[in-house]
Design a protein around this nucleic acid. Structure first.
Lengths: 131, 131
DNA sequence: CCGGATCCGGTGGGATACTG
DNA sequence: CAGTATCCCACCGGATCCGG
């Protein structure tokens, strides 16, 4: 196993996660990262445009998630020295390349979501029947 | 946006998540699901075999995650009416089909992990330089 | 307009002990 | 062997208020 969380009791876990897959998924698996990336895929957007576009995200989480995505190199942030401030976000080449394999997964999710829901209902039915 | 978490104040969120991608990622994005699936991909395993194989997972989480994966139809569980008990876990067809697009993502993570780490270090360096 | 700071609840996940 | 029950903490994410 490539886990090895052994010694590092650090609260950081910021860089050099030993397992690439885990590392990537930890970043992408959160509530918002992927949604932001896909929203940003077709267009460069400003902060509040993004906020309106996504709708049900708090400004906090948007800000926080954007920062992480930027740190990880998925998106690029351009600040215009204007008043009022203007900040634009866009995907980096890395971000775009990430979305390619991700598209396959998204397509899979779309195709198989119904089956998953059905499976859940069946198990739910069994349980209710027993109880 | 397809989020619509509107009314459902239920603690469950068990079935019928409106957004397929979110739904799938919520299940798969946790610490253990994917690791279990990949471990189970090449071989059918018993509970404790799985436990040893993964190593740093608690039995609780193993049990809990297996149950969810089974409910969602990713794995199948076969109980042998023996003493001592014997339970085998294997991927379902759905589970196998899921791993196909997932492989692409795993490959991507492997290829680009170094770049992500580097990007993190650069940002870290910037911050430290300023501070 | 673009966020940061703070508070606070829900949940993921570990440790341990117990059951069938 | 294959789990469950309980406790407990860390962290994610929402709400709100504040600053540049």
């Amino acid at each position: 196993m490539t886990t090895t969380n052994s010694v590092e009791t650090q609260t950081e876990t910021e860089f050099d996660h030993p397992c690439p897959i885990r590392d990537v998924l930890d970043r992408i698996g959160d509530q918002w990262s992927l949604l932001i990336l896909t929203t940003l895929a077709p267009a460069t957007l400003r902060f509040n445009e993004l906020h309106r576009e996504i709708g049900d995200i708090s400004r906090q989480m948007l800000s926080r998630t954007l920062k992480r995505l930027e740190q990880d190199g998925f998106i690029e942030r351009k600040i215009y020295a204007e008043v009022p401030p203007k900040v634009e976000y866009k995907l980096s080449p890395l971000g775009h390349s990430f979305l390619e394999p991700m598209q396959a997964l998204i397509a899979w999710a779309d195709s198989n979501h119904a089956q998953i829901c059905q499976s859940r209902r069946q198990h739910r039915a069994k349980k209710d029947g027993q109880a």
